[in-house]
Amino acid sequence: MQEIRAVVAMAKDAPVTVETIRVPDPGPGEAVVTVQACGVCHTDLHYRRGGITDAFPFLLGHEAAGVVESVGEGVGSVGPGDFVVLNWRAVCGQCRACERGEPWYCFSTHNAARKMTLADGTELTPALGIGAFAEKTLVHAGQCTKVDPAASPAAAGLLGCGMMAGLGAAINTGQVGRGKSVAVIGCGGVGSAAVAGSRLAGASRIIAVDIDDRKLRWAEGLGATATVNSRQQDAVEAVRELTDGHGADVVIDAVGRPETYEQAFYARDLAGTVVLVGVPTPDMKLPDIPLIDVFGRGGSLKSSWYGDCLPSRDFPMLIDLYQQGRLDLDAFVSEKIGLDDVEEAFERMHDGDVLRSVVTL
Rank of each mutant, 00 (worst) to 15 (best):
H110A: 14
A235C: 09
A14K: 15
R313E: 11
T273D: 01
Y261F: 15
V18I: 03
L321T: 02
F83H: 04
K180C: 07
A14M: 09
K136W: 09
G338N: 10
T17C: 02
F315A: 02
D308R: 06
G81W: 03
V33Y: 01
V33I: 05
E335D: 15
D120E: 07
A254T: 12
V71A: 05
D340T: 13
H62S: 05
G72Y: 14
H110S: 12
E99D: 12
K136I: 14
T225W: 03
V67W: 02
D234E: 15
V182P: 06
P15F: 04
S300T: 13
L291A: 14
A254M: 09
S108L: 11
E220P: 00
L158E: 00
E343N: 10
H46I: 01
V358K: 10
R89V: 11
E135T: 12
L138Q: 13
G188S: 00
G79D: 06
C144L: 05
A248H: 08
F332A: 05
G51R: 13
E123D: 11
Q94C: 06
I319H: 04
E3Y: 12
S152R: 09
M317K: 15
K12I: 04
A254H: 14
V23S: 00
S312K: 15
R178K: 14
L59E: 11
I252R: 12
R231M: 10
V228E: 04
W218M: 00
A208H: 09
D351M: 07
G29M: 01
